[in-house]
Design a binder for these strands. Structure first.
Lengths: 337, 337
DNA sequence: CTGAAAGCGCTTACAG
DNA sequence: CTGAAAGCGCTTACAG
């Protein structure tokens, strides 16, 4: 690979001059600019990023951190949509993405720690809502600009309004006259965003005068399969349920599958709603009523925010509205027999 | 951030010695080893990767290249499963992943070119089956070790056996007695792997004595929506079709949706098959007969292969068997009226 | 406007 | 077994 040296030699100037031309400082004449650019072309020069990184302390790489919360994190469409949003912004700014998927343990993933501390990225975006550990916190301690998508303490963050979104969702279910409602969630105090969704659900119950303790609750692990199991559990707790509220779409879809398998008709026999608005939700029959998390937008906003931070601006946090999407899996409650 | 200097000072030795201890050369006494390690701990030393990269020429980063063939490349589960497989191997070897999603144009994406040439990764894995451009070729020209997942010319590659897989698939359809078959594909000479699938389909027809010209053919763009349109087209070409073969699952699913929407029953009225075995395929009703691409395995094998190349071994190419998965969307052809 | 020189933080012959 | 020194390829004061 040709170096700055080679270019300088070819152009008959010093490396300092070449460097100045290339980094667009105003300190050179048009004539030398041409000489230099021609030499760059001739030798096919591309700056060595490691060398540049060593002198400037900038790598033009941003770290994207998706904690390995479950096996299929890479196949989680919502997460990947965020990545898509991040990528499009990074591309505009000519930055690359270094992907990190730290494991969740008692101790903070050491590979992740080294990555942060070895100075390989200029800034970091992390999905940061797992109660147990905060990745952004570690970045901040080490002086790496960081924006979080989610709920962990951070000066800069974007998230969707889980609370209001699920509040609206539950309000809609309740407004349909449902009284016997089952909720599919994940264990409390695991994921801060999910806790918020549960809070929204509870508050909507209280608003409607429904005693929160009358809700049947079952836990899954976000997966479709776990939604099937959870709804079975729910029906055992209370066979008279007329509505199932799931804190994500995948478990809602699992629930629908099981319900249909045991001969229930949706929404006539039972209403089912989810949260996320993944593509699948509009494809299944009946199409699922849900809340749109707008993950692509979350990713874009997070990236833009990070670039603003890197540019020494002080961007405001963003809380994205999460609109209710009413489709065909909801209907009015039939009077209980 | 503390440097090697700091460690050396603290330990009362030279930086050369510290470096030797840290890189596990055999040239030091146990006593100095302990001194050094203690100093490392004390100051909290983490090597600066840019500096190390500059001296050694190694970054411990591998480039993963997923050409931006369509908007939703990041939401393509098959592709992301490959990434998942790659990630698990990289993690074992303590390497990071730099993600690149070059755009497809007449000219090779310049951001991609710079990335390769600026020496930021030690090796590269690329999804490389787009007729138009080869990314691995450029990497090889620039002396960076490369393995391809797909079909472009390369010493090192892994792919699934698209030809045999689709041959088996078509053979199965034909064995069910179908004579009037529609095929949903994408335009020829776009994706080499898809061309292979088509070849497998054609060959199975010939084997069965079916004139390839009697096949009805329509093109989509991999998406579910395009599958809906394509099947409509197919039915216009030949209303008597008893089977639809799609070169991917998503378009097959679109076809099923449209067919069901116009009142057709699957598989009684019409058989539908796909290719890929994405999760959705087993969830829809009826569950889709398809071919398993085993993307996670492809990713793992590709990463292992790359590490072997980096270790100066000479791994053999891998062609993965793609097993037929028979489910509920296929049945015997009804005698034509 | 231009260039000589120092320095970023490592590793690697080389000498001892 | 240990260390002084050069060098990886850049950028950035500094002097002219």
């Amino acid at each position: 690979m040709p170096t700055l040296q080679d270019v300088a030699q070819k152009a008959g100037v010093s490396t300092a001059t070449v460097s100045k031309v290339l980094s667009n400082t105003p300190y050179f004449s048009e004539a030398t600019r041409e000489k230099v650019m021609k030499a760059v072309d001739d030798v096919g020069y591309i700056p060595n990023l490691a060398a540049r990184a060593l002198t400037t302390g900038k790598t033009n790489i941003i770290g994207v951190v998706f904690p390995y919360i479950y096996e299929t994190i890479f196949e989680d469409v919502t997460v990947m949509s965020m990545l898509r949003g991040i990528e499009s912004e990074c591309r505009k700014r000519n930055h690359s993405i270094l992907l990190s998927s730290p494991r969740i343990d008692e101790a903070l993933d050491t590979q992740f720690q080294m990555l942060v501390q070895s100075g390989y990225f200029d800034g970091m975006i992390s999905l940061d809502s797992i109660q147990q550990t905060s990745f952004s916190e570690f970045a901040q301690e080490n002086g790496i600009p960081s924006v979080v998508i989610g709920y962990h303490e951070s000066e800069h963050y974007v998230r969707c309004d889980d609370y209001v979104g699920s509040h609206d969702l539950m309000k809609h279910v309740v407004s349909l006259g449902h009284q016997h409602i089952g909720v599919i969630t994940i264990p409390d105090n695991t994921h801060i965003g999910i806790d918020q969704r549960m809070n929204g659900i509870y508050e909507a119950c209280r608003d409607a005068g429904i005693d929160v303790d009358t809700l049947s609750i079952a836990c899954g692990d976000f997966s479709i399969a776990s939604g099937q199991t959870a709804v079975k559990d729910l029906l055992e707790q209370n066979p008279n349920l007329t509505a199932i509220v799931s804190i994500n779409d995948r478990m809602a879809i699992g629930a629908i599958q099981h319900l249909q398998a045991i001969g229930k008709h949706i929404p006539d026999d039972i209403t089912v709603v989810g949260f996320d608005n993944i593509e699948l939700s509009q494809l299944i029959a009946p199409a699922l009523t849900t809340v749109d998390q707008r993950p692509i937008l979350q990713g874009q906003q997070a990236a833009q925010m990070l670039f603003n931070v890197l540019d020494k601006k002080s961007p405001e946090p963003v809380i994205l509205e999460a609109p209710l999407v009413i489709r065909d899996s909801t209907s009015t409650a039939k009077p209980t027999v």
